[in-house]
Design a binder for these strands. Structure first.
Lengths: 331, 331
DNA sequence: CACCCGGGCTGAAACGTTTCAGAACATGAT
DNA sequence: ATCATGTTCTGAAACGTTTCAGCCCGGGTG
């Protein structure tokens, strides 16, 4: 593997000069510079980032750990974060915990060992051994899609209680009184908050709420929940799902059983992923600014790792209800 | 930041011993080992991977560059690759080129500078300046979802010509004679091959083929193509799309216009992503073993970077047609 | 003429590990 | 007592960069 030494020897200069050509071209004379550059080209020299980082003490990459890459919501978070990172010349490496704590721990350890500039983190839980160990490593981090007190760390999140309430009010306003909620794993704060918001909205009304626990936040969990919904009697007239993947699964179960949506069963999802609007019965959904979430989190992290250490912040975005066919009132 | 030296001083041993505790615990006496370990715990020491890599000369991470993380097909490829990599104790870092050559080039350069163990690559094109520069860097790589001659590099792909033919034959057998093909960017070999397969299947029949060029391989491109399809006269009775995202877009356009699927328009997609089966009119699709693709590619790369350098191979999987409602013949 | 200045370059130290030759010591065999 | 044999540990070199003090030299200033 060709190193800076080989280039120096071939070009007849010292290694310091080669380094200068690469990193501070203006301090070297034009003639020398072009000679060195052509040798670099000739030999196919590629700088060794680990040596550079060892010496420089700081890395040019930022880590991003997401809960589930299979959820298009998180793919948008990735896109937003990449945008902000690239604007600062940093690269993002994305890892997928799949909601498994042991994988989360392993990736956090990797990030710490790599001495990445910082980590954007959508964790399974905001406490726990792995997270504690990571915190001790001193690697800066920002929570994404999860609110924590600003005293602990910066965070960027969406108000899930408000989102749940949006869905609840909408279902009340469209005349529903028997409402089901398909919830995901209770360990996820998102799930707990959305349920809380829904309960807040329904409180004081005559509506009756049934909560169905699903195993996961994916399509097949939604299908299972849909099947259970079909067996209920009296059957709810509307269902709110903790995310769009579940909602798509429920929709599929309904269509498969010949239950008309929204006439016999209204459906509200959460996240407003692209597939929600593209479903053959387009889904009403609570939209979260996913890209913005990723971008803001990356910006916060960049600010935190800059020389002027600003205060930590807890940024909270407000969700928005997008009404589509799946809850449209038909006359 | 606490280093191996601090641990050594605190535990009253040499740095060599600390290193041995971490890397070859069996060579150090039990008493010393446990003393060092407790100091490591106490000080929160985390090994610096860049120093380790600099010295060791080899990295413990593998790069994966995909065309589009927004496509669930590639998310499954990622999952498969992660599985194989973790089995060998390697970590995967995933990057998303979004089909943009300049991003692809930037990530390839990053991989080379990081001296990753190797790269799994689903490139925009199998030639070009960026790829050439990367090749010169000597970083091992394996193509994913793209076949190249084994003399150049190993590759793992699915026979797209066969896949296109599967779709074509199926549409002929279900009685269609006016068939449309929604194609993606012609720069992608996948798109060219699927079209070729379709043409092969239709050759010799009386069927008439219309090709609609779409801008991208995403849902909104599919919607556009669907709108164009609706304006055609005579309108085709079936459409084959280069991937499922497009097919979902076409489906949405049909439903929006009140055109019944499959009675007035049959639809076949490609990839068999989860959303295809979960669509309210479940899509017939050509299934690719995405996870297997990722896993096999990672295994090939691992083999190639092992001591016993095996021969390069071009593994080709065979696609499979999954028939669902969107092409079901109704009597 | 002496002096300083600044541009252009060199040489060496430092970053935090891993690895390896060998030191130090204990054990058992001769 | 001497020697071979382990076992456990040490010290230093090496990995490929970046950075910095300082050298050399030509030209302007007093």
């Amino acid at each position: 593997m060709v190193g800076i030494k080989d280039v120096a020897k071939r070009a007849g200069v010292s290694i310091g000069t080669v380094s200068n050509v690469v990193n501070r071209p203006h301090v070297v004379a034009a003639a020398t510079r072009s000679r060195v550059l052509s040798v670099i080209e000739e030999l196919g020299y590629v700088r060794d980032e680990s040596a550079r980082q060892l010496r420089a003490g700081r890395s040019r990459v930022m880590g991003l750990l997401v809960l589930d890459l299979g959820n298009p919501f998180f793919v948008d978070v990735v896109r937003g974060a990449e945008q902000a990172a690239h604007a600062e010349g940093l690269n993002i490496i994305t890892c997928n915990s799949g909601q498994r704590s042991e994988l989360e721990a392993s990736y956090l350890a990797m990030f710490a060992e790599q001495r990445v500039r910082g980590v954007l983190l959508s964790p399974v839980a905001t406490s726990g051994a792995a997270l504690g160990a990571f915190r001790r490593s001193g690697t800066p981090y920002v929570f994404v899609d999860r609110k924590v007190p600003a005293s602990e760390a910066s965070s960027v999140s969406v108000d899930d209680v408000a989102g749940g309430a949006l869905a609840g009010r909408h279902l009340l306003e469209t005349g529903h009184r028997r409402i089901a909620f398909v919830n995901g794993p209770a360990i996820l704060a998102q799930c707990r908050d959305r349920e809380q918001g829904l309960r807040n909205a329904l409180a004081g009304s005559t509506a009756e709420l049934t909560v169905l626990e699903a195993i996961g936040l994916d399509v097949s969990s939604g299908r299972d929940a849909g099947a259970r919904l079909l067996g209920m009697s009296p059957r709810p007239t509307a269902v709110f799902c903790a995310n769009d993947l579940q909602a798509l699964g429920v929709l599929q179960a309904m269509v498969g059983a010949g239950v008309r949506v929204p006439d016999e069963m209204a459906i509200v999802g959460y996240d407003d992923i692209e597939f929600a609007g593209a479903a053959a019965v387009p889904l009403t959904s609570v939209r979260q600014p996913a890209r913005r979430l990723g971008r803001t989190a990356a910006e916060l992290l960049l600010a935190e790792t800059s020389d002027t250490k600003p205060e930590r912040r807890a940024v909270v975005f407000t969700p928005e209800l997008v009404v589509r066919e799946s809850t449209r009132v038909r006359r």
